[in-house]
Computed example of a mutant assay.
Amino acid sequence: MTDKPDQSALEAEILDTRDTRPGAGNRRAYVGPPTQYDFMGATQFNLLTGLGLREEHHVVDIGCGSLRAGRYLMQYLLPGRYTGIDPNSWLWQEAIDKEIGADLIALKAPRLLDEADFRMTGVADDSADYIVAQSIYSHTGADLFTLSVAAAARCLSPTGQFLFTAILPDDAGVDRMPRGPAHEGWLYPGCLSFAEADVSAVCSAAGLHVQRLAWYHPRQTWFRAIRDPALRMTEEMFATLGTGKPLFDKRF
């Protein structure tokens, strides 16, 4: 029998992080429940590839944080195809230093933008094949939500797809949560909820056609928005995509 290898310093640090409360000043805990860090990155990658993402496409990751999804996307995409945006640059810098490595960054040449105004000023018009914003609009009031969706619509290519989450009134844990339309600015680590009609109205005002997805999320709801209504998903497409809910894992 082969002896189990000694636990590395990185593994020990990551396992210790799992006892940290969400929102704490740790690169993994700061962006959400640290016990779900691996899954929450992987589920975004699986959703994107299930909706047609291929290595030649350009992806913009709004609120990329500590590259929870970015570490999967950078390795998959061709060089220069990944753009991450986050005002907390220490998150991605620490992730690169401790988990991802400078060699991968040099090889895949991602663009990492320190921007806080949701205007996506560093992204060209009509350039993004996929834009993803996971658990961003769960922390924005109506003003920032509207601003961000309008910016995403500007940057999205004519055939591009914008995938994002929001907390709806029927999602778990919403009872005492403030309503997004009654709030302005950014709220973190607290959360805000929007009615599905609010989400539809914001997308429509930006010239986007939105559909709710059944893709699994432990606390929120996924949406898919496109510029061309001909690219709306059919019931057959929804069935083919599935729900993405993990099996054989008691955490979910």
Rank of each mutant, 00 (worst) to 15 (best):
C155Q: 09
G41E: 01
T121I: 04
L208R: 09
F194H: 14
A201S: 15
G207V: 06
D61N: 11
E184T: 14
K250D: 11
L144N: 14
P178G: 05
I131V: 12
A182D: 15
P79Y: 01
Q134G: 07
H58V: 13
A214Y: 02
P189K: 14
I14G: 02
V59A: 09
P22E: 02
R219V: 10
T221G: 01
S66N: 07
R111T: 10
E55Y: 03
T121R: 14
V60C: 14
D175N: 08
E11R: 11
G190V: 04
A214L: 02
R179A: 15
H217W: 00
R154F: 08
Q93Y: 11
A9Y: 01
R176L: 13
Y130D: 02
E115C: 04
S204G: 06
T20W: 00
T140H: 11
L77N: 13
R224K: 08
F145M: 11
A225R: 01
Y130G: 01
R21P: 05
I131D: 01
R68W: 04
F118P: 00
E56F: 06
W222N: 02
G32W: 00
H139L: 12
G101C: 11
S200M: 11
F252D: 04
R179P: 05
P87V: 11
W92F: 14
S135E: 03
K108S: 04
E94H: 09
G242E: 05
A29I: 09
L67Y: 06
L77G: 08
T140A: 13
P218E: 07
A152E: 01
M177N: 03
S157Q: 07
A124L: 12
A195L: 00
R54I: 13
A182G: 08
H58C: 08
L78D: 15
G32S: 03
S204M: 07
G185Y: 12
P169Q: 10
K245S: 09
S200Y: 01
S157Y: 02
A239E: 14
M120H: 08
E236D: 12
D38G: 03
D198Q: 11
N88C: 10
D19G: 15
E115K: 07
P169I: 01
D3C: 05
P33F: 01
E236C: 00
G244C: 06
G32D: 08
G50D: 07
M177R: 12
R176M: 12
D61E: 06
R68K: 11
T240Y: 03
C203Q: 04
A197T: 15
F145Q: 03
P110K: 04
A166W: 01
A225P: 07
E11A: 10
E236Q: 13
D38P: 00
A42S: 12
G84Y: 09
E94M: 10
P246N: 13
N26V: 10
R71V: 07
V199S: 00
E99P: 01
Y130C: 00
L231C: 13
V60A: 03
A69H: 08
M74Y: 09
